[in-house]
Write a protein that binds this DNA or RNA. Sequence first.
DNA 1: CGTCCGCTTGACTCAGATCAAACTTGGTGG
DNA 2: CCACCAAGTTTGATCTGAGTCAAGCGGACG
Lengths: 193, 193
Amino acid sequence: MNPFEKLGLSPLAHQQLGKGQSLFHMGDPIARMYFIRQGRIRLVRHLEDGTPIPFHLAAANQMFAEASLFTDHYHCDAIAEEDCSLDVYSKPQLLAAFQGDPKAALSFMAHLAQQVQALRSQIELINIKSATQRVFTYIQGKVPPGDRELTLPQSWKSVAAEIGLTHEALYRALAELQKSKRIERKGRQVRLC
Amino acid sequence: MNPFEKLGLSPLAHQQLGKGQSLFHMGDPIARMYFIRQGRIRLVRHLEDGTPIPFHLAAANQMFAEASLFTDHYHCDAIAEEDCSLDVYSKPQLLAAFQGDPKAALSFMAHLAQQVQALRSQIELINIKSATQRVFTYIQGKVPPGDRELTLPQSWKSVAAEIGLTHEALYRALAELQKSKRIERKGRQVRLC
DNA sequence: CGTCCGCTTGACTCAGATCAAACTTGGTGG
DNA sequence: CCACCAAGTTTGATCTGAGTCAAGCGGACG
């Protein structure tokens, strides 16, 4: 049961997306909202010189680009990180549904609020100067509370881009963290010590 | 007419805040929402080592810490940048008002969505490696659309912190931008060339 | 079986951090 | 009204750590 269905909406369509295909580009008009059934979608912005800045990785059972509900044009690109299956909803229908269902509206508001906090955490993270400390803090933040272990849903290389490091700097930071026994690691699995 | 009054709410109280005083600290329980009548409030997080990371400057006629509406405890500090005068509202009353007024709920959602985009822009900005380019892009983003001039509401020093530079690096970047005729500047006034 | 891509390490460079010091500005209080 | 203090602003010298370039390894996948 996805949040759109809870509102009594049914999808306009389903959409398949192959790995590397893009769902929309910056500047495209926004008419639809998406829910990810399967796969992952990466949201990316680009600097003038073309450098990609990934700022979100939306996973299965999530909606994404929520902010676009109130804008006419996308302000980022969406690219399938792997093969994806999406439910497509109408943006106007969704807005109308919120009018009639304050509970749903509130839950969507909460969702947005949580996004705001997540983004703030990301900013906080990027502001850490030391690469080693930055990576360590990133891992701490990702480890489920109460647990000490974590398996990354993505490559370390893309983590590097997400936290504003080159992949080389990231790998060196990981090596350093292992040497100083602050983490143990095997591939994409990490454990805090 | 502030957004709370539009909902038919009246303030529980008014609150004065002297420059440098803090309104709340990270971890404090959240019972109220604020609207700034006068002055400015800075939202700050702190790294483990105490380095402050300012991530938002809320100005007069704005509400702020919107994300806190759905959380129990603050995840940042709020400090008065200058003498402030605030209207205080009850958080539960506000939530209840949204239940009864879907239009207001939607407008608040839009507000949150806009915050999400602003934060994403900030992340994009911080990811620009070159200090000069970073400062230039920051200014471009701040200049009102259609205009070419801008007067900063804050010191350059605090801009430096906001965009993840030391103040020295910021001033050097400004000097460089002036030398290469990309901006003109006098104190806190800037004009794009 | 070969190619691609993520991973990993080394050497070198350089931009921004750091440390230091002086000048300007604005506000406070005598 | 002026002396004084705090904070922002500005510039210089030095240092350091992340970026860059380069090269090799290994696993996945067609």
